[in-house]
Amino acid sequence: MTPVQTNNLIDGKQTAEDIKVEIAAAVAKLKAAGHKVPHLAAVLVGHDGGSEAYVRNKVLACERVGFQSTLLRYEDDITEAALLAKVDELNRDPEIDGFIVQLPLPAHINPEKVIEAIRPEKDVDGFHPMNIGRMVAGLPALLPATPSGIVELLSRQGIKTSGKHCVVIGRSNIVGTPVSILLAKNLDNANCTVTLCHSRTENLAEICRTADIIVAAIGRPEFVTADMVRPGAVVIDVGTTRVADATKKSGYTLKGDVKFAEVAPLASAITPVPGGVGPMTIAMLLLNTLRAATGEIYPRATS
């Protein structure tokens, strides 16, 4: 097998760190001016391993930039009504600038109902229909964290997007659909011609081979293989699936949606898993929280 290149890796971890430094500087200015520091709350239901790790990283990131953070934990038998009551309480709490309810939720809780219950001005995940609608209309909004993180990563890496053909694999409301919209926008760091593909797309490999940029967000480990990528393409891997691995102390290995070992030698630039899109998601969540706290997008929430 051809050795995997390393000089074409897109370092999402370092880019996210750069953004955190900028946010920390903004927080320091707020404190110096006598304003309260941004306060992010996270609601975690159950004990999903991936969610536990992700929320823990969010709390650590808050400490890194000088935010206040609150973690609210509930067992997976919490009722939908009780969770919605907590959302309402957070909506009305003037000390909380933004909050997230970590997904996935237990099967008995409707995630759409929970998302819609969050006030748009506190929706720092950027999932609320109002934020999505404003994004589509080109109005200021708290943007979905992972999609905006992908766009920001491409921009800060100096990867040209204007006029390029981008193929997005996956049409979820959390990543695939919103990133396709953002990359097609008439903006300096977008202006792509976007093809949105999914599980029922015919001739998927053929379509992918026409792409200058591939965003793999289908949630299937190692789904994108070398025969789907033309030499020189940029590959953004959004996937993070835990795959059983008895050789690891943790008992699992994180796999992306891209078969990295065979795709990396073809790509002009590629995100690793971990260390690619994941850190950017957290960085953009922090940026949304800062914007919510300062009223940059919406007027400050009132109780």
Rank of each mutant, 00 (worst) to 15 (best):
A211D: 09
E75A: 09
E296Q: 15
R220N: 11
E206F: 03
L9S: 03
V273Q: 08
V167D: 14
L90D: 02
L254I: 00
E116G: 00
C62H: 04
D11M: 06
G34P: 06
N91H: 05
S250P: 02
A16G: 14
P120M: 06
T241I: 14
K259M: 10
F99C: 01
I214L: 13
I118N: 02
L90N: 01
I150W: 11
K20A: 02
A292T: 07
T281C: 05
K185P: 08
V101T: 09
G50C: 00
D97H: 15
M1G: 13
E206T: 12
D88Q: 13
R119K: 11
V179N: 11
S69Y: 10
V234M: 13
K13Q: 14
R200M: 12
A28C: 00
T6Q: 15
G278R: 08
V238R: 09
R291V: 08
T294L: 06
G239S: 07
Q14H: 12
M280T: 03
A41C: 04
L183G: 01
L71S: 01
T289R: 02
P104C: 11
P111G: 00
V151Q: 14
R242C: 08
V243W: 14
L187I: 00
E112A: 06
V136F: 15
H128I: 00
T289Q: 05
Q157P: 01
Q102M: 08
N8C: 08
A211M: 04
T70L: 11
V258F: 02
I132K: 12
P221H: 13
A267F: 14
C208P: 09
E89I: 10
A216S: 10
I174W: 10
T6D: 14
T15C: 08
T241L: 05
M135E: 07
V87Q: 05
T253W: 08
V235M: 12
Q157M: 13
V194S: 11
G158D: 12
L196Q: 09
G34E: 06
P140T: 05
L290G: 02
G98W: 10
A141N: 05
P120N: 07
N91M: 03
P111T: 07
Y298I: 08
I132V: 15
L143A: 00
I169A: 07
A117L: 10
R220K: 15
P274M: 01
H108P: 06
L83A: 00
L204M: 14
P274R: 07
A244I: 08
K160I: 13
A301N: 04
N173C: 01
T253I: 07
P231N: 04
Y54D: 03
G49N: 08
T210Q: 15
V179A: 05
T302F: 13
G50Y: 06
P144E: 04
D76Q: 04
